[in-house]
Design a protein around this nucleic acid. Structure first.
Lengths: 248, 248
DNA sequence: CGTGCGATTGAGTTTCGTCAATCGGGGTGG
DNA sequence: CCACCCCGATTGACGAAACTCAATCGCACG
């Protein structure tokens, strides 16, 4: 299977989204613009591995010698502050590329939130591929721009929104990430802890907990089981996320 | 003059930093990895323009048809929130590229803070150059990764630091930006208003003002004239920026 | 000299962080 | 199989940091 694309799709996914004809994967991954020869080359040079929840894919400061694609599972990317607190700079989902940078070392930790499958490619081999397949370099640039835009979006969320608005925006971003991976669902995987969410949103875990409790009491969300959330009233959450505290 | 690089350096700058032998510009710009032929091509396809302070280089949502390099001056990049507030996603300085994106439209406003000189290149022409000069595409990717890393840094600042720590971090980022443009100075241009700084840091303008006043009273900074700041006690500012509120 | 905008300063309020106690569920060991 | 334990989540009380509203200052510009 070609390693640089998204999780193995179920049959109904195949029917509803454009797939890479080589490996049946979704377009979110890296190999979407490549031809058969390039796919073969990537396949032969990369390795697939499974890793358990809570393992570190790499750490901030490690030499950036490998590039990963998350085939299945969830990951968080974090930076450590001098005082020991952490800032989550992003979450990653099946199909996302992790750890590609032009810097000599990774600028953040990557930790798995769930048991996951990953594909691993040597940075040197990727650079070779980039030289041989210009479309792939263009693809990397596209992914980088997307990520930059998303991070700027997150800056707006953290900088200008009230606590509840941030939590609402986070829930909506889960919907968006889920949509990238398949047909829209209202019940979503949410494998991150309250502390993870808080570190992502620039809040404390208590404030996140209170916000989610408030949403639950208003009937906007349900949490049928641990690490799973059902969004019942999307319009209300959207309205709250748009406004800064009182309204929209 | 080659358009895609930094401001015309004074003689002492030429002596202290690597320059593009074609146009005497600094490495911060785009053309650093290019050969003579490519430089000629870029020069012939781009135009230099001057624009007054407070003019909009482009607006969020405009079709992203042009790419700019700030030759001289200062700019802010902002996103508008639904409720009318703005978030400054970054400031740009002489030598920086503005407005390159693979998206169909610009994801933010770009407004000049001072009278500025810009070089303008059609997006289509840049894409052609990217195809003909692979090194240039690699350079774009490098710039994008740098910007992404800086934005993540900013996310940490906004998400986890106290008001004074954010303002201190902002002042230090001005030092860093100045260093990119020439030899280190302690008196820096700071053409942004308190409101601009506040919108960058996720604070109110009053809080920014109070923080700067506090720094002034402690003798850490001076503001000899409007829009200029002298950093007297860099270690103190650094220590404050590192810690989250009380210490380090 | 007057006007206007940006900056400063003050007073009161709100939101969110802090500290602390308790809950609850899943896993483990007796 | 059951009880205990541990970790994550919840809830409450309190305090502090930053926001809001408002008045004033001061410099640049007309």
């Amino acid at each position: 299977m070609n390693p640089f694309d998204a999780p193995h799709p179920t049959n109904e996914l195949k029917a509803t989204a454009p797939v890479c004809d080589r490996c049946g994967s979704r377009v979110a991954g890296l190999c979407q613009p490549l031809d058969i020869a390039a796919l073969d080359e990537i396949s032969s040079e990369s390795q697939q591995t499974s890793m358990p929840a809570h393992s570190m894919v790499f750490r901030e400061g490690d030499p950036a010698g490998k590039v990963f694609t998350l085939i299945e599972g969830f990951a968080k990317l974090t930076r450590l502050l001098p005082d020991g607190k952490q800032q989550v700079v992003g979450f990653r989902f099946a199909g996302d590329v992790i750890g590609y940078t032009t810097l000599p070392s990774y600028p953040f930790d990557a930790e798995l939130l769930t048991d996951s499958r990953l594909c691993r490619l040597e940075r040197g081999q990727l650079d070779g591929l980039l030289r041989r397949y210009p479309k792939l370099e263009r693809r990397m640039l596209d992914l980088c721009v997307q990520e930059l835009t998303a991070t700027q979006e997150q800056l707006v969320t953290v900088g200008r929104r009230s606590a509840e608005a941030r939590v609402a925006a986070f829930l909506l971003s889960l919907v968006e990430a889920s949509r990238r991976r398949g047909p829209p669902r209202t019940v979503l995987e949410m494998p991150m802890t309250r502390a993870d969410i808080a570190d992502f949103l620039g809040l404390t875990l208590e404030t996140v907990s209170r916000s989610l409790t408030a949403f639950r009491k208003r009937g906007w969300i349900r949490e049928p089981v641990h690490h799973r959330v059902e969004l019942i009233n999307l319009p209300a959450l959207s309205a709250l996320a748009e406004g800064t505290s009182d309204n929209g």
